[in-house]
């Protein structure tokens, strides 16, 4: 019985908590991608770098706060800086839209042209972020590191396995719940939110109904800026910030959005957790859990790791391919333009 509990604790500690936090980060990222896809009708390759930009602004403001002695006590200072990051990113995406995307929208260019254009934006943002903050890892988490530390847990329960619950993980989960609730309230209950859904559903009819496309697009960008910054900051607090890592997040984020069904917000969230849990469970060395759960003679001698963590992209990719093969519109019916 104690063995079972120990195994359960190990599982929670190494799989369930990290995967939930990572899944929440992916879900918020994928929500941004899916909103752009639903309203502006293209896959935004610059999304990873938008996240990096928002995180960078937040980090810079965090450093400034730290230097003048402002902090949030046990919570990371970055939370206080987050609104500045969102505002900065909002200005950035609105300017980008005016300077770049609007022209092609007016022209009614093919979506793939917009994708290529977003590649150009990706380059510029990537360069900009590296130019301002450099290519190195930046750790900007401060405040209390753990909600429950492994040692405290062991002392508290007397179990052999420890359970660590990082502040950043708790924060990620709480923030994700708030963000998702706000977003769904906005999309389903407010006039502007409903008009966005209408625009995404049937653009011509939305225009006929007197919905102002420029306003819908602007609101979309604002929401995307907020989502991208929140996702980026949470990921950065949980792991660390490096421009290249954020560029690479593009793959699991797109995989989440596609697996869930492009254009479907519910799908983006489901997709995020599917991808995160698969990545973590497949690259986790199960030996630690199995030594508790298996009878003595069957205890595994190897690490029982299905794939090394270096192949985590392969996991997102494999799931993506499987979903595309068997259910091309995703788990929740997305658009298939």
């Amino acid at each position: 019985m104690i063995d079972f509990l120990n195994g359960l604790v190990a599982l929670t500690n190494f799989v369930i908590i990290p995967a939930t936090a990572y899944g929440a980060q992916l879900a918020i990222g994928a929500l941004g991608v899916t909103l752009i896809y639903g309203i502006l009708r293209f896959s935004n390759f610059a999304h990873g770098d938008t996240m990096a930009f928002g995180t960078m602004i937040t980090i810079l403001v965090t450093w400034w706060f730290q230097s003048i002695g402002i902090n949030l006590g046990v919570l990371p200072t970055a939370l206080l800086a987050l609104p500045f990051g969102i505002a900065g990113t909002a200005v950035l995406v609105l300017l980008t839209d005016k300077a770049v995307y609007q022209f092609y929208r007016r022209q009614k260019a093919k979506p793939v042209i917009l994708v290529i254009v977003s590649m150009g934006v990706m380059f510029i943002l990537n360069g900009l972020v590296r130019f301002i903050i450099g290519v190195d890892d930046q750790n900007f988490a401060d405040g209390e590191r753990f909600i429950i530390g492994a040692r405290d847990f062991r002392e508290m329960t007397g179990l052999r396995e420890g359970l660590a619950f990082k502040t950043s993980q708790g924060l990620t989960i709480v923030t994700a719940v708030i963000v998702v609730a706000l977003l769904f309230w906005f999309l389903n209950k407010t006039r502007t939110g409903k008009s966005m859904r209408a625009f995404s559903d049937n653009e011509d009819l939305a225009l006929l109904s007197g919905i102002n496309p420029d306003r819908v697009v602007m609101v979309t960008w604002l929401i995307v800026a907020a989502l991208a910054t929140v996702a980026g900051v949470l990921y950065g607090l949980d792991k660390s910030f490096a421009p290249f890592t954020y560029f690479q997040l593009l793959l699991p984020i797109f995989a989440s959005a596609i697996v869930g069904g492009l254009g479907s917000p519910i799908g983006a969230i489901a997709g995020g957790f599917v991808i995160a849990f698969s990545e973590v469970t497949i690259t986790y060395a199960w030996k630690k859990v199995l030594v508790y759960w298996m009878p003595e003679p069957l205890e595994p001698s190897s690490l029982m790791q299905l794939l090394s963590t270096d192949y985590k992209f392969a996991v997102s990719f494999a799931i993506l391919v499987i979903v595309l093969l068997f259910k091309p519109t995703g788990l929740f019916k997305g658009k298939s333009v």
Binding site: S43, F254, I258, F313, S316, S336
Partner: peptide, 20 residues
């Protein structure tokens, strides 16, 4: 796997295979 699906899907699939 990816041809015959939408163009964005091919993009993501190729992006993924390159990383792999």
């Amino acid at each position: 796997t990816a041809l015959g699906l939408r163009s964005d899907y091919l993009a993501i699939a190729t992006l993924g295979i390159a990383e792999i």
